[in-house]
Design a binder for these strands. Sequence first.
RNA 1: GCGACGGUCGUCCAGUUUGGUCUAGGACAUCAGAUUGCCAAUCUGGUAACCCGGGUUCAAAUCCCGGCCGUCGCACCA
Length: 491
Amino acid sequence: MSNYDKVMKLALERGFYFPSCEIYPDAPAGFWEYGPTGTNMKNKFIELWRRELVRRDGMMEIDGCQIMSKSVFVASGHISNFTDPVVKCTKCGSTFRIDRYIEEKTGQRVPERMADSDIDALIQKHNLKCPNCKGDFGKVGRFNMMFGVGIGPAAEEAYLRPETCQTIFVDFSRVFKTMRGRLPLGIAQVGKSFRNEIAPRQSLLRLREFYQAEIEVFCNPNRLDEVPKFDEVKSTILRLYRDGDSGITEVTAQDAISKGLVPNKLVAYYLALLTEFYEKTGIDIKRSRFRKLSDEEKAFYASVAFDFEVETSIGWLELVACNYRSDYDLKGHATTSKQNLEVVDPADQSKVLPHIFELSMGIDRSIYTILEHSYYEEKVKEETRAVLRLKPYLAPVLVGILPLMTKDGLGEKARKIHSELKLDFDTFYDESGSIGRRYRRLEEVGVPFAVTVDQTTMQDDTVTVRYRDTMQQDRLKVTDLRRFLNNALRI
RNA sequence: GCGACGGUCGUCCAGUUUGGUCUAGGACAUCAGAUUGCCAAUCUGGUAACCCGGGUUCAAAUCCCGGCCGUCGCACCA
């Protein structure tokens, strides 16, 4: 059984995540729900992101709408760039990106704006047939990855956002003005995005509705090397890679700049912050890299792009896209909306249309990767124990409270301890089955501590605290539990 | 979207080849009771499934058709 399968099984059995609408036969692919355990962990992941990126860097967080007007996507380029010309074989039904197919077969470039009728004519002229079955192609159609929605009785055209950043761009002007913004300014957002993937696959890894945590750093393009905070991270190790490299290059953020591997201090600063954040999630940073994208791979808006990737049992997985988007977005929105989106940089009183560097994080993929990198199996007395070694601050439950047995008042005592802690910590009370079984159940969902009430507790008001990873136990006064748990939550 | 293969309790699997003894079985998990009392113990009992729709047939988990979902490959992935 692969690690992917093990995590998948754990997710289904223990309430991390599962398919949406699963009791109905018409449940569409690419939609997944977080169960109680997964939701708790996801919330904690987001809170860590807030701490390590948003608060650390003094960013502002907003929460925007998921449905946005058509104009937004005219301005963003999604209406034109996101709409691919496709053609369907009339015989076998296979669908092809016809612009690419024509280029491949004839060497003739098909401009993005070419009319469908002109593309049809090209197919005729070159007598192109389906490569699979030699059947005839039908008429050119258009496929857009955005979900359209109709608003109001007239069903006015609008779209579910395909990336959360668009709300940040359209909100930028007001936020900057009213919140007394200064460049560089990071605006952050956690929320859902929607893409009509042709072939969603592998549970949380390719979804049609998914969570993003995005950060858009608005900056003055003339001051990309003026980053006072850079000193905090100058010796942080960045792991850089480009396709074709023999291995990953480990350099400090400082050296990455002096060697020209990263274009400027601003980009290096955020790559370093991101590295430090992911180290704290418990992902094995030795199995991560920033892959520099080639020109062909970059998104239509990006001028420099690094993907933060992590090695998993199913290969390298992109968790974060780090794109230098230049002024592509604000220019587009300024032109389409006819609003002036320039701001004054107080450093030199110049008026600039800010450039944007973004960290676009996939939350669902991150959650999956943390689960996979945290999952361990080890032999204990001929039995295999499965342990999720989640950091205490990411664990869905921090502490399990267990009476060794229910009689002699141990049950009541344990319930009392539980009710004293449950409002301030994520706790779980369990008195069913043998103590060993209860420990195993806890460690399988990553609970780092178990507090056990035994006979001694009744005499001196102490309990045992058992550690998930080592299975060692300490004895602690009940009155010290709060302090112990608060300490354990320290990041 | 195309192709190949698949879909049975929460999970994994048996049953489908050759339609009927399937009133669908087991293991693990889970629940209740008993017992034990610090690492998945034992005993007893319970909950719980044939993906959906149609067809063939006296009879369908089993055969046929369609749909949905999954895995893999191709294509796609701003």
